[in-house]
C-alpha cells in the first residue's frame, strides 16, 4: 500500500510540467523513504532524475518498494484537473493496475479523483557515477532561463566556459559571435546572486534546446545549479524546498 499527501499540490503540477516534454513513459520508484524517478529522453541525450523525500509530504506511507509505470503525457493531462491550491494525494495498492490521484480544495469543498491506468515499462536504468564537479555555478533561475532563450535565437549550441572569475556562455553562428559573461556577484539580494565554485576550469558545448526544456523547472526554485566536469555530462539542478531535487543531465556536443 502506498499513500502520499502533498499539501502544496502546485509543486507536483510544476514537476510534471517540467519533465513532460523530455520523458514519455517512466517507472516511478516508490520506497518507504520517498519517491524517485530516472528516465532518459528518446535520443538518450538528456536524463531526468527526480528525488522526493517522504519528509516533504504531509502524510507518507509506503509499506514496501513499488514501481509504478506511468505515461507522463497522461499524468500531465490528469494534473490539469488540479487547481493551483489543491492538496494532492497519491494512492496505489500492492500490484496496483492504477494510481489513484485525489485533488482536494478544503476551502471550496471541491474534490477530484482520478484513477490513472498504469503501464508496464521495461526501461533500462543508468548507473550515474558519483562525480566531483570541478565547477559549480549557482545562478538565478529566471536569469539563466532568459540567457538560454536569447542565445538560442543566435545559435543552437552554447559553449559554457568556467574559471575562477566568471562563467561565460558563448555562441557563434551565421549571425555572428558573442558571449554573456557573469562574474561572481554576491549582491545583498540573495536571489540575484551568481556564485562560482571553480576548482578546475571547464569548457564544453551543449544544445541549447535541451537547456530551454530543463528551464521549465525554473518555477520550482529561484536558483539553478550548473555542475560541470570536463569529462562528464552537464547537470542542471533545481532544489525543491523541503521536498527534494530535480536534476537534468545533458551530454555535451564535441567539435568534429
Amino acid at each position: 500500500m502506498f499513500e502520499a499527501k502533498l499539501t502544496e499540490g502546485l509543486i507536483l503540477k510544476k514537476i510534471v510540467e517540467s519533465i513532460k516534454d523530455i520523458v514519455t513513459d517512466v517507472n516511478i520508484d516508490i520506497s518507504p523513504s520517498g519517491i524517485s524517478l530516472q528516465a532518459m529522453d528518446s535520443s538518450h541525450v538528456a536524463l531526468v532524475s527526480l528525488n522526493l523525500s517522504m519528509d516533504g509530504f504531509e502524510h507518507y506511507r509506503a509499506d514496501t518498494n513499488m514501481v509504478l509505470g506511468v505515461s507522463i503525457a497522461n499524468l500531465a493531462k490528469v494534473m490539469k484537473l488540479a487547481d493551483n491550491n489543491d492538496q494532492i494525494t497519491l494512492q496505489a495498492d500492492q500490484e496496483a493496475t492504477h494510481l489513484k490521484i485525489i485533488f482536494e480544495n478544503p476551502k471550496t469543498e471541491r474534490t477530484t479523483e482520478f484513477n490513472l491506468n498504469l503501464i508496464t515499462i521495461d526501461s533500462e536504468h543508468l548507473a550515474i557515477p558519483e562525480t566531483e564537479y570541478s565547477s559549480v555555478v549557482t545562478i538565478n533561475s529566471g536569469e539563466f532561463s532568459k540567457i538560454c532563450k536569447e542565445l538560442f535565437s543566435l545559435s543552437e549550441t552554447v559553449q559554457i566556459t568556467t574559471n575562477t572569475d566568471y562563467v561565460q556562455f558563448s555562441v557563434e553562428g551565421e549571425v555572428g559571435s558573442g558571449q554573456v559573461r557573469l562574474g561572481h556577484n554576491d549582491s545583498e539580494k540573495k536571489e540575484d546572486q551568481t556564485i562560482l565554485e571553480v576548482s578546475e576550469s571547464v569548457q564544453q558545448q551543449f544544445a541549447i534546446r535541451y537547456l530551454n526544456m530543463f528551464n521549465k523547472a525554473s518555477t520550482l526554485s529561484s536558483f539553478t545549479r550548473l555542475c560541470l566536469h570536463q569529462e562528464q555530462p552537464l547537470v542542471v539542478e533545481f532544489k525543491i524546498d523541503n521536498l527534494g531535487v530535480l536534476k537534468y543531465f545533458l551530454a555535451p556536443k564535441i567539435s568534429d
Binding site: H125, L126, P129, P233
Partner: peptide, 14 residues
C-alpha cells in the same frame, strides 16, 4: 560541425 554525444557514453546501462 559538432557532434551530439549520447549519455550512454558516460553512464553504464544496467
Amino acid at each position: 560541425g559538432r557532434t551530439q554525444v549520447r549519455l550512454d557514453s558516460f553512464f553504464r546501462v544496467y
